[in-house]
Design a protein around this nucleic acid. Structure first.
Lengths: 163, 163
DNA sequence: TTGACGAGTTCCTTTTCCAAACCCACTCTG
DNA sequence: CAGAGTGGGTTTGGAAAAGGAACTCGTCAA
């Protein structure tokens, strides 16, 4: 299966992975959330090669995750900003950061802390059920087919998730 | 930067990406959460080639995300199960699924629905602040250096996240 | 008119990935 | 007990992607 076939699958994970399922793309997005916006900044901070960076940025723009905004004319220069679609990837990035903080941190401790402006506290991200707001775990969830199940269901018709 | 250098970075995203930042790995994990456990099942459901599947499973086992458990002897056969470390990737997968449901779903609707056993409702996953339990957005969070900032800080010393 | 800057391209080498086929231990069937 | 079947992988080359360094293209400033 090639990258472009992924997007055609009847599975939200496959479709999302077709956009962000690449190591460099995820690192570029991390930097976007840390307010990096310009080609040279990305290149220096990431240590990514220029051709790969140009390719990833173009793909993210094509996917509607970033937009290219001119910040000066003569010569025209652009910066890359997260769109709302891109901002909505925040939970994905935060979930990744949190897992890394828990399982991949050196003895020195986590490299970055997060503070919630609204309540003022340092916090960890938590995933909860939208209906009852209880903490979510894999074992507490079952899956059911939705209206979009069709053709080649990469997902099974039904069943518990994990056991 | 090569894959193995990623894990050495002072950044939880980079470290996590060194484990799961690969399209096949994410799809394998998706299937793990859907209770797929055996080599042949993964291979058939994913359409992944055998060498790549063997490689990804071995890496996930090495990373402690999956464990190889014998389910029969003579001939000995193993299945791959999520460890606690692997189960804790659930928020990452759910965040990915949710974003795909919102932005990548065809007109037919989402392919899979999730039901929370505890409350009985179909739900969406939400990310909230562990301290005040309010919904989290990128704009509501600032980052600060933690104790693990050192050497080559791939993260800036401080600053708001997005604005 | 030479340099510098920002944002990319081009070109070539090295890795990594993929597809099909092959292998191996063991069991079952005739 | 020969041959086929099963589960779980390797081996082997060709295709795609990543890495590295240099080059291009407007524009301005010295």
């Amino acid at each position: 299966m090639r990258w472009n076939e992924l997007a055609d699958q009847t599975c939200s994970v496959a479709r999302t992975v077709s956009v962000i399922g690449d190591r460099w793309t995820l690192l570029v997005l991390r930097d976007c959330f840390l307010r990096i916006r310009r080609f040279e900044q990305f290149q220096e901070k990431l240590g990514i090669t220029r051709p790969v960076l140009a390719d990833r940025l173009a793909k993210l723009v094509a996917a509607g995750v970033l937009e290219k905004v001119p910040y000066q004319l003569r010569p025209v220069r652009h910066e890359y900003r997260l769109t709302q679609k891109g901002l909505d990837l925040y939970p994905v990035l935060m979930a990744i950061v949190h897992w890394g903080d828990v399982y991949m941190t050196s003895e020195a401790g986590r490299p970055l802390m997060h503070r919630h402006k609204a309540c003022g506290h340092l916090f960890d991200p938590m995933m909860v059920c939208s209906e009852c707001r209880a903490d979510l775990t894999a074992r507490a969830v079952t899956v059911e087919p939705g209206p979009g199940v069709r053709a080649k269901p990469a997902n099974p018709p039904a069943g518990k998730a994990v056991g």
